[in-house]
Amino acid sequence: MIIYGVAVLAGCLLAGMVVGDALGVLLGVEANVGGVGFAMLLLIVLTDRMRKAGRFPQHSAEGVLFWSAMYIPIVVAMASTQNVVSAVGGGPVALLAGVAATGVCWSLVPVLSRIGGAEEPLPPVSEEEEV
């Protein structure tokens, strides 16, 4: 059933959030540390095990894949609720600080991704496959 996939996904995110919040309390910061990351690792490991044991059939996977397909629309909704007015109207200090920090970090991506050998680019996909 599709709901099994959705339930596994929800369970992973909730577990990740708890771990991330607990880690935040442990470190003494008012933020979730890596909750989404832990949730992703949990989902990868858990679904891989379940699939190998034959307990995660295609119907269950569809419950996860649906949300994956909803990712871009959700991000578009997120974009439409950002505080763009403050970003644009923050004045020269805010503008320069934001732009300079982004620019410097952009320039380091090729340096870091070469550590331990450069990787091959992903094969191209057609838009239909992707959406």
Binding site: L41, Y71, V75
Partner: peptide
């Protein structure tokens, strides 16, 4: 409703779902 759809809960839910099938 855009705030619900694009809020942190559904956003994180969708982000985690993209990890399905990733090679550890």
């Amino acid at each position: 409703g855009l705030g619900v759809m694009g809020g942190a809960m559904l956003r994180d839910f969708a982000i985690v779902s993209t990890a399905y099938g990733v090679d550890l």
